[in-house]
Amino acid sequence: MVHVCTIVPISLTVGANRIIPAVAIPHPLGDPSRTPEEEVQIRRKLVLKALKALGTEIQEQTVFTD
């Protein structure tokens, strides 16, 4: 399981092991200030990062910043 969320400290507190910081609380996987095409790219990048995290060996809670 990978947690894509905006408030990383809460995710760490509740015990998620693989964490991907997201864009913003009301739109974690999007950015309404961008064009629809750019938004899809942002979302795609985050989901790819999440999938990569799922494929990464970890020993402890890990925030995948990049």
């Binding site: 739109h27 974690p28 996987l29 999007g30 938004e39 899809v40 985050l46 999938l51």
Partner: peptide
């Protein structure tokens, strides 16, 4: 608990079904 404007306008911003289908 959050301003629903952006999620209602495009729910993929919270549940990324569109890019999951692409991938």
């Amino acid at each position: 608990g959050y301003d629903p404007t952006y999620a209602n306008k495009n729910p993929n911003r919270v549940l990324p079904v569109d890019v999951m289908r692409q991938l």
